Amino acid sequence: MSEVHIPLAAIKGRGAATQLAHRFERDAREAFDDGWTTLDEGQAEHREPLRTEVIWENARSVITSNESPDVYFERSVNPYRGCEHGCIYCYARPSHSYLNMSPGLDFETKIVAKRNIASVLRHELSKKHYEPKLIAIGTVTDCYQPIERELRLTRAVIELMHETNHCFGLVTKSSGVERDLDLIAPMAAKGLASVSVTITSLDAELTRKLEPRAAAPHRRLRTLRTLTENGVPTAVSLAPQIPFLTEDMEQVLEAAWDAGARSAFYHVIRLPWEVSPLFKQWLEVHYPQRAARVMARIHDMRGGKDYDADFATRMKGAGPWAELIGQRFRKACERIGFNRKHIVFDTSQFRPPGMQGQGMLF
C-alpha cells in the first residue's frame, strides 16, 4: 500500500501545524492513511486545545554577551525560552532542539522560565568590576508573552534596572509592556529606557495566522501611542519582511509615526535550521497558492538557498529584491521623518545593587 499525502491543518491559536522533529532526533514520523480510520481519530485528538506548560529553570548566569557585528547590543537578558506568541518565522525556534524538544508546537507550548533571573542578575550587576552597558531584554523570545502576566519575571528584571539606574531596551509584540509603565516611564525620563514594538503588517487576517497569540496590529499601535504619551522613546520594528505577504511597509511606517514612534528598523525573513520546514508547512496550510512564489523570492535574496547565515547579508538579504526592500524602507523613512535622531543611553547613573540574603555577609 502506498502512502497517501495527508494535508496539514491549522491549530487554533498556534503557529506551527506539527510537532516537527528536531535535528538531533534519530527518528522522524509522518502520518499516512492506512485505510482503517486511525488517521481520522488521530487528527480529532490533535485538534484538541493545546495547553501551555511552564518548565522552571534555575539559571546559573543570565547576562548573555553578543559579538555578532550585525546586532546593535552587546548584552542581553532573556527571562523565557520558547514563546506563546507562536510566530511561525521566529529564528529562535531551533533553540528548543537543544532542550530535546520540538521547534514546532513544543516551542509554543513548553515555555522554560528562569525562576531566579532577578537574583542571579543582581549578583552579576554587583560584581566589583562590572561595567554598565545597555542590556537588551527579551532578544530571543518576547519578554511580554502571555505567561508574563502570571509569572512577572520581566517585571522583576525591570524593577532591578529601576533600582540600579541601569539602562535597557526591549522589543515586544505585546501590549503587556503597558503594565510596567510605572517603572519604564521614570527611567525613560532619565535616558535609561526605550521600547520597540514589532508591527509586521497592518493586515489583521495575516498577522492572526503569522503571529497567532501576539496583540493585533491596531492594539500594538495603541501601545506605541501610550508609551510615547508617557515620554518613553519608541521605535517600530518591521521584522521580518516576507515577500508577497508583508507588502504594506509604507502604511505600517506611517501608522507608527502617527502613534509617536520616531525610529524604525527592519529585517528580511530568516529561515535557519528547523524554521525552514516549519515555514514551508505554514505556507502549505495558509497560502498554498502563494507558497512557491514566496519561497522563490526568498531564494533570490539568499543566493538560491532557504537561508544564508553570513553576517554581511543574513539580516537584509542580498540581490535586487533585497535591495528593493531596502530602498522602499529608506525612502519611506526619509519621507516620513524616521531615524533623524538616535537614542543615547546614560550609563553614568548606574549604582550597583545591594546584595540580598546570604550575599550580604560577604
Rank of each mutant, 00 (worst) to 15 (best):
S68M: 13
R122Q: 10
F362G: 00
D142K: 12
Q349C: 11
E131H: 12
H22P: 02
K110S: 10
D34H: 04
T223Y: 04
T223V: 11
F24T: 03
G326M: 08
F244C: 12
E148I: 10
A31Y: 12
Q349P: 01
T313E: 04
L224Y: 12
C87H: 00
T200D: 15
A264D: 06
P186D: 02
P94F: 15
G317A: 05
A193C: 07
S76C: 15
P103T: 09
A309N: 15
R155Y: 07
R330V: 10
A312I: 01
H46I: 09
G359M: 03
E108C: 06
Q281Y: 00
G357L: 01
R314P: 00
Q327M: 01
I343C: 02
D300R: 12
E25S: 13
L170F: 01
A214H: 11
K128I: 06
A259I: 06
G304F: 07
R270Y: 06
K133N: 10
V77P: 00
A312M: 10
F168T: 14
I343M: 10
G317S: 06
V62F: 14
K190C: 15
K305M: 11
H267Y: 07
K173M: 00
Q289C: 03
H85F: 05
W36A: 13
D33M: 02
S276G: 02
Q281N: 15
E211N: 14
Y91V: 13
M355S: 00
P132T: 11
P79L: 00
L324G: 05
A92H: 09
G13E: 11
T228F: 06
P272T: 09
S76R: 09
I184K: 07
Y80E: 02
A214W: 11
E108G: 02
I111M: 08
E25G: 04
H342W: 03
S348P: 07
A322E: 04
R115T: 08
R351S: 05
D258M: 09
S174Y: 03
H129W: 04
E250N: 08
R219F: 03
E211F: 15
P233Q: 11
R179C: 06
Q327K: 09
T109V: 09
T246I: 09
T18F: 06
E229W: 07
D306T: 02
A118T: 03
D180C: 11
S196T: 15
R302A: 00
E108Y: 06
R222A: 15
P320A: 06
S201A: 14
K316G: 04
A204E: 15
H129Y: 08
E211V: 13
Q251V: 10
G138C: 05
F329V: 02
E323I: 00
A44E: 13
E159Y: 06
T172A: 01
K110F: 03
R222Y: 13
T37C: 05
Y80W: 08
Q289E: 12
A255M: 05
P272N: 05
S95D: 01
